[in-house]
């Protein structure tokens, strides 16, 4: 059936791990926005949640790097990081192998995809789950787009991946929710950690909210790198959600640069019930 929920959020490890170093009021506003996103997700009564992440060398490395991958297991483990460093305890996260396999087979009809029968979640998935499914009682289907080790699949392939995910969700009887997690402009884990290009972020989020495919596909990695850091390669995760809900408007519920979290923290959902946006391409 059609996706029951779709949204985007930040996943920076500092959001939990360095929470005590942030401006308390800014941190509280972000946490409230996450709590609101959780309520919206739960209200959609999903059977499973696809998390399109941009993992950080927890599972995939340059010896064998897939551009796109999805998990196909009944359970996963995470976080890979030191629990004290991340602020999230190690746990087992439920999956759904049967649903994963049916989704993967459908996605493969439109795009090249790797699958993984084991997957260690890093902060890219664990931070969103910490807020959205803190009891770890919702089956998760991890998906990954290589946003770390160039060469990266071009943006229009991420768009095709999102379209394929939509087809896949449509083809199964389960109620499937979808989130994309990543940063917009940021320079994470580098000496420039904390740099945020707010105007770049707001321009991209405006295009995301209008599902402006042409505008979003026009970002080149070389220019994005100069304007918005290597973290901006992760806009692929947001665009995948746009492609999976093409024509539906996005609502940015929260955006605020929080330097100690190393990113302009973002919470957004897609209004799946709204009238379709006019075509912009």
């Amino acid at each position: 059936m059609p996706l029951v929920f779709a949204g985007v959020c930040s996943h920076a490890p500092g959001i939990v791990g360095r929470a005590d170093q942030a401006d308390p009021s800014a941190k509280d506003r972000l946490y409230e926005a996450f709590a609101d996103m959780r309520q919206r997700l739960e209200a959609s009564e999903p059977d499973a949640l696809i998390v399109v992440a941009a993992e950080h060398f927890a599972n995939f490395f340059m010896n064998n790097m897939p551009s796109f991958a999805m998990g196909m297991a009944d359970y996963y483990e995470g976080p890979i990081e030191n629990p004290d460093w991340l602020g999230i305890q190690k746990t087992q996260i439920p999956g759904n192998r049967s649903l994963s396999e049916r989704l993967i087979r459908k996605v493969m009809e439109r795009t090249d995809l790797s699958y993984a029968e084991e997957w260690k979640f890093d902060h890219g998935i664990m931070v969103p789950l910490h807020f959205l499914t803190p009891s770890y009682d919702l089956p998760i289907i991890p998906a990954n787009i290589n946003c770390q080790g160039p060469p990266l699949a071009p943006l229009h392939r991420a768009w095709a991946f999102g379209q394929a995910l939509r087809d896949a969700a449509d083809s199964v009887p389960e109620r499937v929710a979808l989130i994309g997690t990543g940063g917009i402009s940021h320079w994470p884990a580098t000496p420039d950690s904390g740099k945020i290009n707010e105007s770049w972020d707001r321009k991209f989020l405006d295009e995301w909210s209008r599902c402006d495919k042409e505008a979003m596909l026009s970002y080149g990695d070389s220019q994005s790198y100069l304007d918005a850091g290597q973290g901006a390669f992760e806009i692929r995760t947001f665009m995948t959600v746009s492609a999976a809900t093409e024509g539906a408007p996005g609502i940015v519920h929260f955006y605020e640069p929080i330097p100690i979290f190393a990113v302009g923290c973002t919470i957004g959902t897609i209004d799946l019930d709204a009238p379709q946006l006019p075509s912009v391409h």
Partner: peptide, 22 residues
């Protein structure tokens, strides 16, 4: 190269990012 958080914020005319050099 390393630009620095404060220098970047100043170049973009932002003030919100300068509270911490992180």
């Amino acid at each position: 190269g390393y630009e620095g958080v404060d220098a970047h914020s100043e170049r973009l005319g932002q003030t919100s990012n300068t509270e911490r050099g992180n």
